[in-house]
Design a protein around this nucleic acid. Structure first.
Lengths: 215, 215
DNA sequence: TGTACATCAGTGAACGCGCGTTCACTGATGTAC
DNA sequence: TGTACATCAGTGAACGCGCGTTCACTGATGTAC
């Protein structure tokens, strides 16, 4: 089953044309991903991406409104990969505290494995004013739901919205630690120390969560 | 007393000339600060800065090696301001736990008061390879020492290097929470909620630190 | 103190390049009969 | 199935602009006597 209709945004596009369009889009996203992973977001050029994708420069603008739209698509893919990684690792254990630890470790591992794609997620400045599209926000929220899951056990008295806010706070804290370390800001610390430090930090949070972190 | 000699990096610069050079430098830094605070780091142009500072475009390059060097100077000023703010607020209370809370609140307040200068601190990409100059690193470390101060009481068994690493971790966590909120990533939360959330979060850390966070 | 010469901070027009986006064109795909 | 025409995805040269950095020049400051 193909979902061509979803993408045929304007007019009716029949079989072959829609397929080619999909193929082109996929090639562009793939090319952009690998460009970003190799050269970072700042090293992304429309010319390079289209050359890698095997199409003309202008073709990009028949599929995406502009470069930003393409970058957002890459972000969406990265978020999906990240969510899959986290989910996989989290479900290897059943205790909620352990799951939190796994989430932290998996996040760090992901950031190390694809540092530039990961950075791009936060570096990219969406033009002010324009709100991020819903499908992108959903991807972000999916990530938070993953964290909220073990958190529900640890904080059973929280409402759903409170839970999401709490999940965001915890994510943000871990993200801060990982990103400041990987970007080598402030004092540098040995590589292995970071793993221990993060584990200890989450342990600290868990200690607090066991009854001392009432909403 | 003037400290002209410090800045006369090459050759011997006498009185009037050195003074003018200092004055020019100060005007450039001030102009860059206000440009960044108004338009963000990405909106900084050599032409605008020099126009604001009342000198020719080329003058910038007689005082700084390039734009990056000027931006770094702005960063240094921002770090100084930040450190001053934090110190002031922290010393209004004496209990170490309260001091931690004050540091967090003051950090959030600073980020809100000068959002774009604050962002620039982390946004700015120093060319890879080139290490950040020592005097800049010192400014960063000064900030950590401020955090390490109350932390010493809470974790008396830590060595000095461990203390600095721990301080960095705590700073990074708080920074993550503040920045993800102010940049409006993921689910949005009401403005006042952020203050409570941060306070609660630090409270949680403090709970853990009271005996459960052994190095 | 005054004069002649030397230095060099500061000038700003011009260079040079990068790069996102457009648009007149063309050839592959689709439709009508 | 085949032919004639219509559409439109895809092309890539050209546009347009922004902007960091340079460099030949000049006038203010400093030095020598």
């Amino acid at each position: 089953m193909n979902d061509v209709q979803e993408f045929a945004t304007e007019g009716l596009m029949t079989g072959k044309r829609a397929d080619k369009r999909e193929d082109l889009k996929a090639r562009l996203v793939a090319a952009a991903c690998s460009r970003i992973e190799n050269s970072g977001l700042a090293g992304l050029r429309a010319r390079d991406v289209t050359a890698d994708a095997g199409c003309a420069l202008g073709a990009l603008y028949t599929v995406f409104e502009d470069l930003d739209a393409l970058i957002l698509e890459v972000g969406s893919v990265t978020l999906q990969d990240l969510e899959r990684s986290l989910h996989e690792r989290m479900t290897t254990v059943s205790d909620s505290g352990d799951r939190m630890q796994m989430l932290g470790a998996a996040y760090l591992a992901f950031a190390r494995a694809r540092p530039k794609l990961w950075r791009a997620l936060f570096e990219h400045q969406w033009p002010e004013g324009k709100p991020l599209p819903d499908w992108y926000m959903e991807r972000q929220i999916g990530l938070l739901r993953l964290i909220a899951q073990p958190l529900t056990d640890l904080q059973p008295d929280l409402s759903q919205p409170e839970l999401m806010v709490r999940a965001r706070t915890l994510f943000a804290a871990v993200h801060g630690i990982v990103s400041i370390s990987l970007e080598n800001r402030f004092v540098g610390i040995p590589v292995e120390t970071l793993d221990h430090e993060l584990e200890r930090f989450i342990g600290l949070l868990l200690t607090g969560l066991n009854g001392n972190f009432k909403g």
